[in-house]
Design a protein around this nucleic acid. Structure first.
Lengths: 144, 144
DNA sequence: GCTTGACCTGAAGCGCACTCCAGATTGTAG
DNA sequence: CTACAATCTGGAGTGCGCTTCAGGTCAAGC
């Protein structure tokens, strides 16, 4: 199975259950450098290696990276993510803390959404100055 | 009116229609340093000055800073804000561009909200692992 | 007259999250 | 055999948005 189609197998057709760094990057949208950075920072457990030392990402890694990105994109810091990961590694006794951490973050995201919805209102309001037929309002708007 | 109660007038009771930097900061929640920084970066027109060179913020300035903060807090960069301000200073011929700018930003905020709502879903999903009676799921969750 | 406190200025520094670099290794292709 | 592409490593560099600093002015209080 492994020695029959050397070329296609190891290079092209990735029927494998692992991904190269490049594939991982393409698949998750996270740059190779950032993937390494996350690993170095303890945001992912050490990735499996091939004989030559190259990383071999598993499908589980893909999922985890996606979770990571989701949390990062919503403002969780590297520091907090590291903490969350660490808890995960320490077993299920830390579950309450992990739950609390997620709940806190969830709330932060909700707050952020609320704030942005407020902003939308203000933007809409300001846009009326420009869409209205009358442009009687001076440059820096709210003035006067 | 101005010479009768020198002490109270100039120092304590601010029945004035201007604010000192400290008051401005307290009022808008933006630090004095940041206010100066915004001015230097061209995000606000030069602030009026007292005889001694100290800034005197007007109530219009308060409103403008609030708009600024709203846009900043929703991810508009200093660069973009500067551009927006510049347009404002160039008169009403730039109104279409300012409108477009706001519309683009509005869309970005909407996208961001959508993304965060997605994140909430994922967080909720992950939280069920911890709230459920069974904790059959290993630390880094999605694995296996 | 001296001190204090609020403010001024230009410039340097900081924290975060990447991002890039130099130099080395390794496996396949021509 | 040589060339090339993908990857490796530790460490330095980058960009953004402030924040801090050093040194100075000025008005009021003791």
């Amino acid at each position: 199975m492994k020695k029959k189609k050397t070329k296609q197998e190891t290079r092209k057709t990735n029927t494998q259950n692992w991904l190269t760094p490049a594939q991982m990057s393409a698949c998750t949208g996270v740059s190779i450098d950032t993937l390494r950075y996350y690993e170095k920072e303890g945001l992912v457990q050490p990735i499996a290696r091939a004989a030559n030392g190259h990383r071999r990402y598993s499908k589980a890694d893909v999922l985890w990276i996606e979770v990571l990105r989701c949390l990062r994109d919503t403002g969780m810091t590297i520091e907090q993510l590291r903490h969350y990961c660490l808890l995960g590694e320490q077993g299920e006794t830390t579950e309450p803390e992990r739950l609390a951490l997620l709940q806190a973050h969830r709330q932060k995201v909700l707050d952020s959404i609320a704030k942005q919805q407020e902003a939308i209102k203000l933007i809409d309001h300001k846009m009326t100055y420009y869409t209205r037929t009358s442009h009687s309002v001076p440059p820096n708007a709210t003035k006067k």
